[in-house]
Design a protein around this nucleic acid. Structure first.
Lengths: 271, 271
DNA sequence: CGGGTCTTTGATTAGGTTCAATAAGAGTGG
DNA sequence: CCACTCTTATTGAACCTAATCAAAGACCCG
């Protein structure tokens, strides 16, 4: 039921996808890029007939891989992705879930090669920003340059918030924030912030949040049981975003009730 | 013993500090700034007699605070600091421990105010980089601009590595990496990478690593007991950096021996 | 329909937190 | 210079959260 209601961001069927591929925008100008990044763009850029190419990717395709020489930044025009690091023991670590308006590839600037890889979780329309060209453009348009610094700073703050979350919040709080964050982002994109489909697996969510997939699943179930959300596989309905937003530990209801029952049962048996 | 040997980065006494204050460098040019940041600097910058001011801070003083309007970046010329975020429940979360050559304040660019605060953990000599002036300089010196992007990217990668560590490593592994990181940084600064003094409390280390201060203390003690390090309060001696570098869980020695003893004791008592 | 991936749920265990008490230092003021 | 206090560090014991191991069900796609 949830799944069928929420068709807006559901994966397209074959025919629709083919049609979309044919009609896909192929180039964007600087103004469109700035709009997408939610940064103010200099009016003076109308002169620039610079255009940035779009490229389509299908589910599972990699936009860039670890170690690949850096020369591009990427903006999501549509679709959903994950970015992933491989730690020393070969395990995937999900770093972010880019969606419309998000910039990625920044990690490649410093070492001149990407330190992470980006994988499409759905069909994606990605705008290529050749970094040399883009930063040169910034040089002649100071406001754009400021905007680039600003976006990079924003990403840094986001990572810091992530560190803070991993360092101090319980599993339940992390999952709650994750759902709130998705809800906010879907809302900002014009989709429903009440009902949406997850594009990633429990395993990927767990990796992103520093939890196991079982803990993610259990926490979803617990939230479902106390009515905070409605969850059925990938379909999510948000019922009480206020509580989710500030949740630190689960209100003593289900699991606590079980323990209380036990705690009361023991003395009763003894008496 | 350890503490007395390691005088190089020990806190200065009053007289030495006063002398240092008097003789402190007051201004640095662009080349010196680039050297400090370990970025290649354009030879063409000799023309610029731009100078960047130094400011001294004493232990406990704040370089910038949360919410303060952003206008500067900062480089550590000497001394040790921490940067801190306050999470929603009012708890401090340590984000980094800047030392010589490190840049901080970047988080303020996006929202035009700092989202973290920086506190001196020792006497510090800090170089002020007015951001407007600095980025303008980048515009006329493309190599500098590239270097600025590069440093920001480096910080982002650092945070990503932090996220990965918090998400996947055990307490012991985190503490081990922390010590290795300090050792490497001291070494790079020309100090001993074998013996040094911690400038931060167990609480601050724990906050940085997403652990409690007790766990940090216990882990230091465990490393000490199996000879990986020598620890006495703030004085640290690194004995086996190779093991620390790759450690994932503690080799079954002390705590395991205790459990095994118990496990064997129980059936023995039963028999 | 069948194989594979993904998800849910249960039982058990282990690693880290919490609470608590003691000890060791650093700084202050008499 | 010593006593006093406050902060910091160490260590123990009990508890609890989340990981691990295991099994069954749901979904998807060819």
């Amino acid at each position: 039921m949830l799944a069928t209601q929420n068709t807006m961001n559901a994966p397209m069927n074959r025919a629709a996808e083919a049609a979309w591929q044919r009609s896909a925008k192929l180039w964007s100008n600087l103004n469109e890029v700035c709009d997408l990044l939610r940064i103010s763009c200099p009016g003076a850029t109308l002169d620039s007939d610079f255009a940035f190419q779009h490229v389509q990717f299908k589910t599972g395709q990699r936009i860039h891989t670890i170690g690949q020489p850096f020369d591009m930044l990427y903006i999501v025009n549509s679709g959903f992705l994950k970015t992933v690091m491989i730690d020393e023991s070969g395990n995937e670590q999900v770093l972010s879930f880019p969606m419309k308006g998000d910039l990625f590839g920044i990690d490649g600037i410093h070492s001149k090669q990407y330190t992470s890889e980006a994988v499409a979780l759905s069909s994606c329309d990605i705008i290529l920003l050749p970094f040399k060209k883009f930063s040169a453009l910034g040089r002649s348009h100071p406001e754009l340059e400021t905007a680039i610094y600003s976006v990079m700073s924003r990403e840094l703050v986001r990572e810091q918030a992530m560190v803070s979350m991993l360092g101090s919040l319980s599993a339940e709080a992390r999952v709650a924030r994750f759902l709130v964050s998705l809800s906010d982002r879907f809302g900002a994109m014009g989709y429903s912030n009440k009902e949406f489909n997850l594009r990633m697996t429990r395993h990927e969510i767990g990796s992103y949040l520093g939890l196991t997939l079982e803990t993610v699943s259990r926490t979803f179930s617990a939230f479902n049981e106390i009515g905070l959300i409605a969850v059925d596989q990938r379909a999510i309905g948000i019922n009480d975003i206020g509580t989710l937003r500030t949740l630190r530990r689960l209100p003593p209801s289900r699991s606590r009730a079980k323990q209380q029952a036990q705690a009361q049962a023991v003395p009763a048996a003894g008496a």
